[in-house]
Structure formats: C-alpha cells, structure tokens
Design a protein around this nucleic acid. Structure first.
Lengths: 217, 217
DNA sequence: CAGTGGTCTAGACCACGCA
DNA sequence: GCGTGGTCTAGACCACTGG
C-alpha cells in the first residue's frame, strides 16, 4: 500500500472505529512525518483528503481534530427518468401534451410513461435567452430534459421535494385516484441566469428517492 | 491571488462559461506548468481539486477532460428538527408516546411539535448491541435523534424519501385530515452493523426538502 | 512503448491565531 | 512571538494506458 493511502486508511479507521472520538486532536503533521517516516507533503495530502471528506477539521496553530458528525447530509441522485424506467425492465416513452412560448420561455408539458402506465407529469420551462435552440424544437419525440442534457454545459441547480395531493386533472392524467404524490421541482441556472425549471409529479406509490451517505467514500 | 487558486479559477471559469465544453481536453499538466510558470505539484493539485469537484476527468496518457455533467445530484441536508422549528421562530417540543424493547432494539414513538401543533411523527429503533446506553434511557424529555447525536460517532446512512397517505391514526396524531404526507426513512450503520433506523412523517403542506447543487462549490 | 497523470521527497516561505 | 497548517518549488520514480 502506498504511504499516503496507508496514513489515510489508518486515521480513518481509528475515527470510524470510535477509537478517536469527535473533538479529539489527531497527531500533528510533524509527528506523523516522524512516525510514518515520510515527507510532510504526503502527510498533508492524506490529512487534506480526510478534511475534504468531512472526517477531520484542521485549525492552524491548534492542530487537526476529529470532526463532529454533520446532522445529516446525503448525496441525492435525481436520475434520468428514461434510465430509471429502463432499469425496472419497463419500456420508456415520452408523450408531449403541450408546447407554447410564454414570456421568452418555451413551456412544455408532457407525460413520462413506464410500460403502458403514466409515471410522471412534467411541466418545464426553458429560457430562450439561455438556450435559443429550444425555439426550433418541438419536443414531440424527445423529453426536454434529455434534450437539454446534450446541449447545456455545467450549471447550478436547486431542488425542492414535497408531498402533495394531485389536482383532479393531474390524477386523471396519471390514471390514479387522488392519493399522495411526490413532487420534485428543480431550478437550474448558469452563471446566475436561469436556464430551465421543471416540476415533476409522481404517484407516491410508484416512486421514491434514495440518498446514500458514507462520509469519506 | 495564489498561483494554484488562480489556475483553478481560470479553468473553472472557462468550463462554467461554456468556453470549454464537456468532452474537451484541457491543457496537459506540463503545458500549464509552462504557461503559468509554476511547479507541476501546484498544477496537479489545482487539477485534482477540479476533478474532485467533478468538473474534469483525468485519464493517464490521454490527459484531462471537461466532464459531462452528472444527470442530477444534489447535497440533501436533513437537519435536526429542533433547529428547523427554532429557525421558523416556533417553540419546539418533543413528546414521547411509547417506549419499549423488542428483539434487542429500543423502539420509541413520539411527536415533534412546532409551536402548539404536531409537526412530525417519529418512530425509531435503536440497536442495543450498538448503543447499550439506550437501555437506561427513557427518551421522555429528549428526542432519541438528539440524544444519539451526542453519543454515536461517525456512521453511514441511507435515506428514502416518499409521499404517502397517513393512516387514520397518523392523521389524528398530526391533527390533519387525510392528506399527502412526506415520509423520510433513514437507516444508519457503523462498520456494517445497524445502529438506528427512523421513520418520520410530515404533513405535506408543512414540510419540504431543499437541496442545492453547485458543482465545485 | 512513450507520455500521461499519480505519487513521492526534501526542502522553503508564509499566514494565521493562540499565548 | 511562535508553532501550526497552507502553499509552493524542483526535482524524481512509477503505473497505467492509449496509440
């Protein structure tokens, strides 16, 4: 095992095992340099990785300390619907219901189907200022999310997840009684300018979100 | 500005602006060493930070490339309920409803209140194998989540978020009609051994989850 | 098999923050 | 002040992998 990796694994193990508890100071860099017989850059890099992973906090003059666990944070994956449906072994289909232009946005409404059943109602706005090519696009055959993925580079996003009752019209579209639905809203910007926003509505019994959290992994 | 930071900001800017698109190769390390007039370690560290942030991918022999954006991932914060309630300017209160021991687990059911209204039903199991001190704890005055935070070191967790209809009994406890609720379930392990699991049920109109995503931030 | 990134050494100066 | 981590230089060897 490489020296840096060994140092990192050693310390991480002592933290995860509980041998070193939140708040404890871990050895100074120069002490680790001596005990592991390697250069300071190597030790420093190992500690930096642990700090990035959130396992330790580093303070000048004071040293490095085992961090107190964050209350709870997790990486939430909001995957491509076509992929989710395919992984369940069902046929995926996009059905556009409406497309119009309003206030400089293309507004598209449609249904994602899994097998023969409706799976999600999507309402999306795309800013023509940010994505002028959207003007010429019908979104009849391809969901706007999939289309956008190919064109839009890196961006920032905010998600909001809530539980709502569907309106009568929404329940009819989804082919379900008026029962709890999961709503995922997402707003996307690039450089502060809005790119797109989307609201997706899922029958509560057919969709959920899973988020894993393994610090340092 | 420090050299490493400048290199990083430069490249990040070109990616975020769209000047360098997903799939584009960025200059080799040795080219950046020449053009910025600094050491390879500095360049390497800057690129490594960008790689960790997910903005670039590095491949031996081939070079470093602007990454294709992940479909959607976001950091979901699942904060302490007492804190959430306090931030809304409401009084927080925990009310234990039941505590029993079953199959080596302490099972606690209770209500989180915001102001004078019920805010969340919590059902929790705590493994006595992982947390033996829980045996002596009544959880009458302190919610088990808060209590655990102080005692349990680093752990892994999985979250599941779904929309459900409350049972009649749940609706009565929450003081709401039978309308959509958000359910958050969380399973926690340490070193592969289960520590605790919890199911929280919120009235859909009183709680939602927000997750931000700014790659590299 | 040549060139890339991955990792390492052995030094150095600096900025911060506690005393 | 002074010791800590933060950052940097100028080298070096190695492992992987694409051409």
């Amino acid at each position: 095992m490489k020296p840096g990796e060994r140092i990192r694994a050693d310390i991480e193990g002592r933290i995860r095992s509980g041998e070193w508890k939140p708040g404890d100071r871990i050895p100074f860099e120069h002490e680790l340099v001596r005990s592991y017989g390697c250069s300071r850059a190597t030790v420093s890099k190992a500690l930096e990785m642990l700090a990035r992973a959130g396992l330790i906090e580093r303070r000048r003059k004071a040293g490095s300390f085992v961090a107190h666990p964050r209350v709870h944070s997790a990486v939430l994956e909001v995957p491509d619907l076509a992929k989710v449906v395919a992984e369940r072994g069902l046929a995926y289909r996009w059905q556009r219901l409406k497309r119009e232009v309003q206030d400089g946005n293309v507004v598209v409404t449609g249904l994602h189907h899994a097998g023969d059943e409706p799976y999600c109602i999507e309402q999306r706005e795309i800013s023509l200022a940010a994505v002028p090519e959207a003007e010429a696009e019908t979104f009849a055959d391809e969901a706007p999310g999939t289309w956008l993925l190919k064109r839009v580079p890196w961006s920032e996003a905010r998600h909001r997840i809530s539980a709502v009752m569907p309106t009568a019209a929404e329940a009819r579209l989804l082919g379900i009684p008026r029962t709890a639905c999961l709503r995922i809203e997402r707003w996307t910007w690039r450089g502060g300018d809005p790119v797109t926003s989307v609201s997706q509505l899922f029958p509560g019994d057919r969709h959920d979100l899973v988020a894993d959290f393994a610090p340092g992994a």
